[in-house]
Design a protein around this nucleic acid. Sequence first.
DNA 1: CGGTATCCTCGCCGATACTG
DNA 2: CAGTATCGGCGAGGATACCG
Lengths: 141, 141
Amino acid sequence: MDHRAKLDSARARRKPAGRGDLYSPDCPSRAVLDHVTSRWGVLVLVALLGGTHRFSQLRRRIGGVSEKMLAQTLQALEADGFVRREVFPEIPPRVEYSLTALGDDVAARVRALADWIEGNLGRILASQAAPRARRAGATER
Amino acid sequence: MDHRAKLDSARARRKPAGRGDLYSPDCPSRAVLDHVTSRWGVLVLVALLGGTHRFSQLRRRIGGVSEKMLAQTLQALEADGFVRREVFPEIPPRVEYSLTALGDDVAARVRALADWIEGNLGRILASQAAPRARRAGATER
DNA sequence: CGGTATCCTCGCCGATACTG
DNA sequence: CAGTATCGGCGAGGATACCG
């Protein structure tokens, strides 16, 4: 299906075996990055960094997430190998989510970012309030 | 459109002066996080960490981005106080983008994440390929 | 060169209903 | 409790055209 015949020479730069290149549109790392940095992906990873959670726990912890998006986000992260899903054959059923070793690693980076934003929100909002007067017509929503 | 009448008590929890709470749906930090972790926001920040860039340079560097989205992303990051925009009154016109002190700080965290993903793409793809056989006859796509 | 404005499509996401 | 299936809106985002 992928008939890109332009693999002649320009694309000669090899990647060191499994090294991704985020600047390339079709590098798989783009998809992974999108999952990790998705609106709910970030929050799920950070939450799981605090320990194993059940579905409902995550749903309650992460304000504003719908069941559908939470399930979808968890599936993507599980597929990427970041999240482990354990089903307990009980009644009522119980499912627990936790980070894999790989997931723990990314989540640490994600939390570093999330923490920085939370901790510097004051400075950020201050910077926002002090832009030189630009012209109107801002597409800001 | 904001007829959420439930602002009676739930919104009572104050934040310690400028500290954000990403778990709260209406905390401003959510918007900032979304800008920073947006599909193109991440790549723009990392690119600018490499130094000042002109519009076209960024466009060429970041594969797959459209002019519209690049402009939009840069505006959002500028509004948040992460990116500085300098216009040179020349002909042909030249505009340079660089990181502010604040932007340099976030970008470092973003790059840590981006670098990790690029560097561990091999392990990630391997994890994707090796999901433990859940129920028999996995619905492997 | 470095944008902005307009159109239009696609898929994200919420709401709802149903299953085990 | 913990999901999956389906429908529909609406906004993100690409293509194009035009301006300073």
